[in-house]
Design a protein around this nucleic acid. Structure first.
Lengths: 199, 199
DNA sequence: ATTGTAATCTTGACACTGTCAAGATTTTAA
DNA sequence: TTAAAATCTTGACAGTGTCAAGATTACAAT
């Protein structure tokens, strides 16, 4: 695979990939620049040629997370064109699925491991894109008279917040066992949306 | 206040307090055991007489956060006895207020800075207590016919998740400026609940 | 093609961190 | 009174993020 040249060739992506792997296998607490570098087969300061600091790498990983999430949302939207309600429900399901399948990436995306002092344009762009997708679904539902009309973005925050909150609580282990024995996360989220819709 | 005895007298609480202060002033990233010890005026390993490791101190800080939150909820509940709807709305407002006034404690309470391998009984107890308070409010609303009946705990997760999710997104800076210019967090949360109620 | 400049990567260093081990001091209980 | 337990200190170690200086390579301008 890798010819042992002095220059790696695609180190930046290799570092992100290594970071994602460490995140999945060992969790946020074990993610270090040095370990990422080691995994990519370079010296411990090589990452500094591509990332200004650890925050910057985290931003890149989060960005990739949002790209994947965005792609999942897009797929849900396109799979159910002309069926706004299904778009909404399946979009939410995609959100749940993504979070459960990528717990630590999901955490890092939202849990402000990223301190927002500096801004990371790519991150901001793709995370806003995800929000815009949600707004669009809501707007479509409004046009189809499935959701009450009004400010679509505020409504989107409310609905998105609901989905996000339930998942976040679940991932952090804050939802009691007894509840999760009755209903799966998927079911709870779906029920939440159904309630929100028929109002 | 402190006589300079060899034994501190109330070091455990002093460490928690110091931790909370650092959290408020410098954020999660700057919270270290050594700094907490320094602030309390003891050596860098003194905390190990009271906390098995850093996680354990974080657990204690989170626990205190839940105690405060729980107290705020309790106050909202008691201030509006015989008015379930107000209990629900004011409870949510208390939740918002607490989160905004203690952003970093709120983050640490939920953002799994606490890795859940070991369990922390005091933490589990008080965090569950908060959830029980929420369930009770929901149950009361059901009895007053303000919320549709059904499994109260599942409904509580849905409502709590909604409130929590909106706040979490806001605190992590994920809610776009344009939305927050139209409506404050308090208003958004209230609107969310009003919608949830009249279904 | 040559060469200078920029990009990439390495070695070495520093301060800071969590944590352990050994020992000092104080409190508590027998 | 004294033995044991609790509390606190000093000293050490490995792991971390990050900087500085220099080595190696790619690349663009001549």
């Amino acid at each position: 695979m890798k010819s042992k040249t002095y220059h790696h060739g695609d180190l930046k992506n290799a570092l992100i990939k290594a970071g994602v792997e460490i995140l999945a296998k060992e969790g946020i607490g074990k993610l270090s620049l040095r370990k990422v570098a080691l995994k990519a087969g370079v010296s411990h300061t090589a990452p500094y040629s591509h990332f200004s600091d650890k925050q910057s790498l985290i931003a890149a990983i989060s960005t990739e997370g949002f790209q994947r999430l965005s792609k999942a949302l897009d797929s849900a939207i396109k799979s159910h064109a002309n069926n706004p309600k299904k778009q909404l429900i399946e979009g939410a399901q995609a959100y749940v699925k993504f979070a459960l399948a990528n717990k630590d990436i999901f955490k890092i995306m939202f849990s402000s491991a990223l301190e927002k002092e500096k801004d990371y344009p790519a991150f901001v762009e793709v995370s806003q894109k995800a929000f815009i997708q949600v707004i669009d679904i809501v707007r479509t539902c409004q046009e189809a008279n499935i959701i009450k009309s009004g400010e679509a973005d505020v409504l989107a925050v409310i609905i998105w917040g609901q989905v996000h909150g339930i998942i976040a609580l679940a991932i952090e282990g804050q939802i009691s066992h007894t509840v999760l024995e009755k209903k799966s996360l998927q079911e709870i989220v779906t029920q939440a949306i159904e309630q929100a819709i028929k109002s």
